[in-house]
Design a protein around this nucleic acid. Structure first.
Lengths: 205, 205
DNA sequence: GTCTATAGGAAGATAGAC
DNA sequence: GTCTATCTTCCTATAGAC
């Protein structure tokens, strides 16, 4: 860092707008969120916004790339950690939880991913980004399941990619259900753990 | 019917508006759909709309109740049919397909349910309706799985309610994926069948 | 029961000052 | 790079004629 972190650099402004956008989009949905509301939360006005993003659509697409990249990178790092450490003594459910990670801002992430998925049904560009991200996530989870099966000599009752898909589907669906039911983090974690354990017991022996 | 079906009865107008609304909401989302667009598709103007629904929110809530009731009733009927006929010689995957049914307007139904789910995360009233519907659906699917297990002396590797949840999750997630990927009905059906079969093989033996 | 007309406001995006 | 001011369009909802 040769310069004393400029508090108003272009990157900083973009980042603050993206963070604000993730909150407002989660709260109000893509169409329900106004550019004004996003700017207000970030501490800017619309002029600043349009000097950083060409349109509201571009902002949303940028956000999708940011959050999917972040989620994928986190999972990839975890998988590498586990492989270099050797697999610790954990149940499959615990392991999946450690890899997928219910984060700090659990609710925000779940709602935002739902918003992205729903909009991907109506937008080819979003669809392509979503499918690529989903395939990469499935692959990482498949990798950890394969490692797990090898280490503990488990027999899988289905192809490892199918197993990964079911685990991810369950994680997603359970988090969505928890948000709709208004469950807290502790209850959500318990639900995901229980159901992942049930699924794991069916998938492997 | 003592009167010759009036073509402009209140019920008829409501029904046409609801049908148009399901299409427009699926295409544009709740916030993206304008009341004007819905009226135009139904062949009315906004005046007629507001004489039948108090607001756009009320219309959406009415639509949610209509489609969830319809979906639930269809599944319930199928389960009853199968129980009174005795279970036919079908694989579990075929049976689930027959019960859940990928309908005519497959794409519309999937997108609409996604829209409802996403909005249920931000609206308590929608949330309550969604949770009630989801619980009832799970119960029906659990019932058919239990029948199936009894008839063929299958051992389930998890509680029957968990099994039903996983089957429904997979059905939903696969349909959503198919819509995002732009798959046709045939490919979607093949995917759902394959994955349901893989899941069934893991759940029971 | 459905129409036209309109009130009244909010939205996305741009232009130009600083 | 960020602001204020503004253009233009679109929206929900209502009022009152037919």
């Amino acid at each position: 860092m040769s310069e004393a972190s400029p508090p108003r650099s272009r990157e900083n402004t973009r980042a603050r707008l993206l963070t604000a956008a993730s909150e407002v989009f989660a709260e109000s949905g893509f169409d329900g969120a106004s550019v004004e509301a996003i700017c207000e939360r970030a501490g800017f006005t619309r002029g600043a916004f349009y000097s950083n993003f060409a349109s509201k659509d571009e902002l949303f697409f940028g956000l999708v790339q940011q959050v999917s990249d972040a989620k994928l990178e986190r999972v990839t790092t975890r998988v590498r950690e586990l492989e270099s450490e050797g697999l610790p003594a954990m149940t499959p459910a615990e392991l999946v939880l450690r890899v997928l990670d219910i984060e700090h801002e659990e609710r925000l992430g779940v709602v935002l991913m739902s918003e992205i998925r729903t909009n991907a049904m109506r937008d080819r560009r979003l669809a392509a980004a979503y499918l690529e991200w989903d395939a990469a996530m499935t692959e990482r989870v498949a990798q950890i399941i394969a490692d797990l099966a090898r280490t503990y000599s488990l027999r899988l009752r289905m192809p490892v990619l199918d197993a990964a898909r079911f685990v991810l589907q369950n994680w997603d669906a359970t988090c969505v259900h928890a948000v709709i039911a208004g469950l807290g983090t502790a209850d959500t974690l318990r639900l995901v753990t229980e159901r992942t354990a049930a699924l794991a017991a069916a998938i492997a022996d």
